[in-house]
């Protein structure tokens, strides 16, 4: 519900609780299990041109792919178009899948490239995935000393946070979505995006700082309802 406050939780997947508790389990959207024999068979059959097998792969992965697209663009119609384009690309390229990485990881990377290409077409400040992952120190938000504390430990306004995430550059948004929302670990993100683990950690940290900065700049009554 737009405008409603989001109550704070004690911790997130990437930020261990200050009481030392373990990080939360991966979000429901993320597949943490190895591929089933049915999926392995479906991949092989789809590579051989079996249409029914391809529809099975769609059924297995549609939720994660659609959710990723929606989280990246924040618009249902665009997310549907991007999901369609991702599966069309998959259909064109599935014969090139060699099983060197998990199929879900491969499909995810393919989808990320589709999303970034679309954002670039729209003229947003998006560069290639590799460039998006390059550290840009001069763009990083300043350190926090001397600045007033935000002290968000109650609630964050939903719309303010949505706006702040939407205003992140694509590279920061991608890392934030993959880690904090999708629940991927830094080593998985590094594999998916072809960057270093250190780069992934650093980009995520900068994304969170930028969000904090954006929320801090909200009018007080909007920032904390």
């Amino acid at each position: 519900m737009p405008g409603s406050p989001i109550p704070a939780e004690p911790h997130s997947p990437g930020l261990p609780g200050r009481n030392g508790s373990a990080p939360a389990a991966a979000p429901a959207g993320r597949s943490a299990t190895p591929p089933s024999p049915a999926e392995t068979n479906a991949i092989a059959s789809a590579q051989a041109g079996d249409h029914h097998a391809f529809s099975l792969l769609y059924a297995l992965h549609k939720r994660r792919i659609y959710s990723l697209c929606l989280r990246m663009v924040g618009n249902v119609t665009e997310a549907e178009d991007l999901t369609q384009e991702a599966f069309l690309q998959l259909h064109r390229k599935i014969s090139s899948f060699r099983g060197e990485s998990a199929f879900s990881t491969w499909l995810y990377r393919l989808t990320i490239n589709v999303v970034l290409m679309q954002l670039r077409k729209k003229g947003l400040s998006v560069v290639s995935l590799d460039e998006a992952m390059e550290p840009v120190p001069e763009e990083g938000p300043g350190r926090s000393f001397g600045a007033p504390d935000l002290n968000l430990a109650g609630a964050i306004d939903r719309m303010a946070l949505e706006r702040a995430i939407a205003n992140l550059s694509a590279g920061y948004r991608l890392i934030f979505v993959l880690h904090d929302i999708e629940g991927y670990e830094h080593n998985e993100i590094a594999t998916m995006l072809g960057c270093s683990v250190g780069n992934s950690k650093s980009q995520l940290h900068k994304a969170r700082l930028k969000l904090r900065e954006a929320l801090r700049n909200q009018p007080r009554q909007e920032a904390r309802l």
Binding site: A8, E9, S12, L15, R18, K62, S67, L70, T83, E162
Partner: peptide, 22 residues
Amino acid sequence: ALLADLETIAAAARQLFPSVEP
């Protein structure tokens, strides 16, 4: 306070975008 804010933002973002079916 900085660390607490970052924790709060990450936790809130997870609730913002539930996984959905197309």
